[in-house]
Write a protein that binds this DNA or RNA. Structure first.
Lengths: 208, 208
DNA sequence: ACCCACTTGTTGCAAATGCAACAGAAATTT
DNA sequence: AAATTTCTGTTGCATTTGCAACAAGTGGGT
């Protein structure tokens, strides 16, 4: 976010955009979307999940955010989705909050850093669309097996190896692929039995 | 995209960003993502679908794009998803293609319009994240019924009425919510029988 | 060392979903 | 006007998935 901006200008930007930083510990609510509809947040460090409680009462992971990710109602979610969408801290994190308008609209002070900030935000938001698309691609699979294979191959590619460790628990994985945990476990077992993968807890190996 | 830029500068921009416009008719492939990985496209008019053929051979709608929407690999999709992801024209459309670098990187000519272009693109991409998030919200529902209710309430809200007309066929709707068409039809019928909705082909009415 | 909360792993059963196949209605092309 | 394609609507059957419930394993905190 502050790439290409020296310390002095970073300080000016913080004032100009009215940025406030805040730290959170696991389990704390980072942002409740029923309030703060024009605020956006950028994860400076740590881990945050965007959670939705669906009508059936299931907890669902909408997004898994880490450093340099943005969130906020202006940047995501339709107006009618407030009910039950909130951001919660997963790993000790620091978040920078600011108003969407300050970025999107031209700054009255016409400060030079505004241009750079918009360029940086453009990259950040572009990166976000990539993650969201990836997520849609996973969810666009009809069966649990296909969802898993899709996600596994992404992680395997990212790790550059056929074997990799999931960065979260299997319970969380189930919420991430929007499936029942026991059904997912059953499917993982079946895939192991069929020799498609080999697993030991969070360690996954894809056998070609 | 060209908001806030006069005709003279728009023309310069087209040269500077090397923008080329192209028209398509329904069914034509607008972009094959296995090639053109650094090109992005903006829909000027009409309708384009982003389609994926999943491993099981099912056709799945990843995105339903209309005027002012962007697409492109830089803006979406992981590297490993080329296989089977492409954009196809739904309704007669016009698309402006350009290179992602020309927007994201600073222009050598340091033309003034570059700054405005990035600001406009920022808004366009932000809007895209909203749609993608909406889509994830729909797909995050576990059952067909919940997916439909989620989507229906979005359309109903957008129409400002409890009754509205789907902008696409029911077959397309099934691909959009990533479900089997017959299973979806069965669910729609069940919901009608239970008095939750009233339907006549693409016309949907939500009863309270 | 103990307690607690959370995770992993498993199962039976009911319900939801996908698949295949068909038929009439509507729209589009010839 | 006839032919062709796409869309809507429906059903039986096999499979997948969700639900509920339980048990053992793990790790952190006091």
């Amino acid at each position: 976010m502050f790439d290409g901006i020296d310390d002095k200008n970073t300080k000016r930007m913080i004032e100009c955009f009215n940025i406030r930083r805040q730290s959170f510990t696991p389990g704390e609510t980072v942002c409740d979307f029923s309030k703060n509809s024009d605020t956006i947040g950028i994860i400076m460090s740590g881990n945050v999940s965007l959670i939705r409680n669906d009508p059936g009462g299931n907890r669902v992971v909408l997004e898994d955010l880490s450093e340099n990710d943005v969130f906020g109602e202006m940047i995501a979610f339709s107006e009618n989705s407030d009910r039950g969408v909130y951001a919660v801290c997963e790993k000790k994190c620091e978040v920078a909050f600011m108003m969407y308008e300050h970025i999107a609209k031209r700054c009255q002070n016409a400060c030079r850093c505004h241009t750079v900030a918009v360029e940086n935000m453009f990259r950040v938001v572009t990166q976000k669309t990539q993650r969201l698309s990836e997520r849609i691609e996973i969810l666009s699979n009809r069966s649990i097996r296909e969802k898993l294979l899709c996600l596994f191959s992404m992680y395997s590619m990212r790790a550059g190896a056929s074997s990799f460790e999931l960065p979260f628990s299997l319970s969380y994985l189930a919420e991430y692929i929007c499936a029942d945990r026991s059904a997912m476990m059953r499917e993982i077992k079946k895939m192991s039995d069929e020799g498609i993968i080999k697993t030991d807890r969070r360690r996954i190996e894809m056998l070609h």
